[in-house]
């Protein structure tokens, strides 16, 4: 898949993953890389950016094994942002889909 496609949609997938329940970094990374095949390392800077932009809140929680884990929680701002992004994506997708279908018929 085209690298630019992935990069654009990665943010949305990350946001949607956290919408349902809070996740810790590694869990989130493995969840996202199931959907989009990216280098797992590139997700961490994205999480950092979304946290810096206050779309995420983080908190530490003890785990049964190993050191405490940093959980990501979607803020209200993050929820609104996710909705906007989703709507944008759907509109974009619909347009491109329509365009492809029309041109396929012509051909």
């Amino acid at each position: 898949m085209n690298a630019q496609f992935k990069k654009g949609i990665l943010e949305l997938v990350v946001l949607i993953s956290v919408t349902g329940r809070d996740m810790y970094g590694y869990e989130l990374v493995s969840e996202v890389s199931k959907v989009i095949d990216v280098n797992e390392g590139t997700i961490y800077p994205l999480l950092k950016r979304l946290t810096n932009e206050h779309y995420f809140e983080t908190y530490l929680k003890e785990s049964t094994e190993g050191p405490p884990r940093k959980y990501y929680h979607l803020t209200e701002a993050g929820r609104i942002y996710t909705e906007t992004l989703t709507a944008e994506w759907e509109e974009f997708y619909a347009k491109v889909e329509k365009f492809i279908r029309e041109n396929a018929r012509k051909g």
Partner: peptide, 9 residues
């Protein structure tokens, strides 16, 4: 914090 993320990964 960043180093911790990668160390945990």
């Amino acid at each position: 914090d960043i180093k911790q993320d990668y160390a945990q990964h």
